[in-house]
């Protein structure tokens, strides 16, 4: 009897996530059994199994970062209100302030 890792997708646009393991003699059986071991309450739209022996894990401390990597994250960029204002003032100082007609700003997903 081998164990199988079970993965499921809750919604069509969600990632496959690990939901548990089950015992089964082979992959074919694991696929049949997983439906009721892990998805009997309508937990997902798609699932998969993988023999536990093919499921490799890494020492999780390798993911714990000790050094600041905020330059890779949105949080690494801030103060946009002030920076935009500084640029506007610099434009005015250069005599390049611009008052042309423009749309009312909408909130943009990436905007600070």
């Amino acid at each position: 009897m081998a164990t199988f890792e079970v993965f499921g997708r809750r919604k069509w646009d969600a990632p496959m996530e690990h939901v548990g393991i089950l015992h089964a003699p082979d992959a074919e059986a694991a696929l049949v059994l997983a439906r009721e071991t892990h998805f009997r309450h309508d937990e997902g739209v798609e699932y998969a199994v993988c023999p536990s022996e093919h499921f490799h894990t890494q020492d999780p401390t390798l993911l714990q970062r000790q050094v600041d990597i905020s330059y890779r994250l949105q949080s690494g960029y801030s103060g946009f209100r002030d920076k935009r204002e500084a640029a506007r003032q610099a434009a005015d100082a250069r005599g390049r302030g611009d008052l042309r007609e423009r749309p009312v700003p909408r909130r943009h997903g990436g905007e600070a």
Binding site: T61, L62, Q64, R65, Q66, V67
Partner: peptide
């Protein structure tokens, strides 16, 4: 000490 931890990845 901090960088040693970080450096493990480079070694691996």
């Amino acid at each position: 000490v901090k960088l040693r931890h970080e450096h493990r990845y480079h070694l691996e």
